[in-house]
Design a protein around this nucleic acid. Structure first.
Lengths: 190, 190
DNA sequence: TGTACATCAGTGAACGCGCGTTCACTGATGTAC
DNA sequence: TGTACATCAGTGAACGCGCGTTCACTGATGTAC
């Protein structure tokens, strides 16, 4: 081998990792293939040896970002249940450093306009996150908890977006607080 | 006058109207100034006689879309309170025809990355919508109802985005149902 | 052991295209004399 | 009433730039003999 074994897959993962951060920071359209490859220490031409299109990378980068968040939220949940999840998700770090935050909160509007394949990848990741949240709810049947979990994730995501979109720092803090309070209310109300 | 009185302001409103629909459909970045002006029956060059930049138009188009939604939700609220609002907002029409739906749900992720001026315009519109929702809540002090209203709008917005982003139609319907149920729960829980 | 060839991850130029913005210009109509 | 000029909404060419994708190529190293 001209490159050591595993070299290509390591490169592949590096591109996905770079993309997952930059897409969350700047959006899907604002990040070009050439600049992404440069960030990964490569040139544009090699891109299509790793991905069949930019949309293909988008699918993988979104899934990767959400998988990583799932781990982080899973650890929080193990330590402190729903309240720990929501305090991570609606915390200043997720709001102020979108590259380390939730890909759904950064990209949901754009994902809604992507191809079926991209939305299918997003759907798979979403289902697992919803399961994690549902598992933290103390009340109700499986179906009820699942439905409640969907709404809770929708609220966390929407609230984080609002906290990022407003122009006033104090208001942004209040929005996060409002979201935390409402999630906890939903978590304990049947 | 070479054009009848009010001609220019009518043109201005037409551009804002076209932009408000197309931005909601395709996103801020995907809609170019030239194609927008063509849609309004004009050529690109005249754009800067109406707006000092694309961001300026974005501010106006978002505000215009949210103002119109406010009227629609206000009418619903007058007839049926919070439940009527949420049934409009989380209805199939808003999900399937984003050009007639909520600009926040279509654009929040992108607005979060815009200039302070754009976010300030968004903030002003958001405050009014939150007030409308707060006015429908039966329980709590002014501050409590306001905070609850922020969370409710965040949930409606996030839930609508999730319903648009998933690849499965049945799941999308379930997401809307989950959101309606949770909003109503939040509306009646102190 | 030494040479010829195969492999393949990555390179970089090129394709046509649309982007936001600027600016000298057009041409229809109002006003001044 | 007739002519000259002012006004200004809108035109369209031009600027440099980055976009996603393709493709002939490079060059380091493994394998075959």
């Amino acid at each position: 081998m001209r490159y050591e074994k595993g070299h290509k897959s390591a490169t592949h993962e590096r591109i996905v990792e770079v993309a997952s951060r930059r897409f969350r920071m700047a959006g899907l359209e604002a990040v070009g293939v050439a600049s992404l490859m440069a960030d990964a220490g490569l040139t544009r031409g090699g891109f299509y040896a790793h991905f069949c299109s930019k949309a293909d990378l988008v699918s993988q980068a979104v899934a990767s970002a959400l998988d990583r968040m799932l781990l982080e939220l899973g650890e929080a949940a193990a330590a402190g249940g729903l309240e720990a999840i929501v305090r991570v998700y609606l915390g200043a770090r997720y709001r102020d450093a979108p590259e380390h935050g939730c890909a759904a909160a950064s990209l949901a509007c754009e994902i809604a306009r992507q191809s079926h394949a991209v939305r299918a990848a997003f759907t798979r990741s979403l289902e697992v996150i919803v399961e994690l949240i549902a598992a933290q709810l103390p009340l109700g049947s499986g179906g009820e908890r699942r439905r409640r979990a969907v709404a809770i994730f929708g609220m966390m995501m929407g609230t984080l977006q609002l906290a990022r979109a407003v122009a006033d720092q104090r208001l942004s803090d209040q929005i996060l607080e409002s979201g935390i309070e409402a999630v906890l209310t939903l978590g304990r109300t049947p």
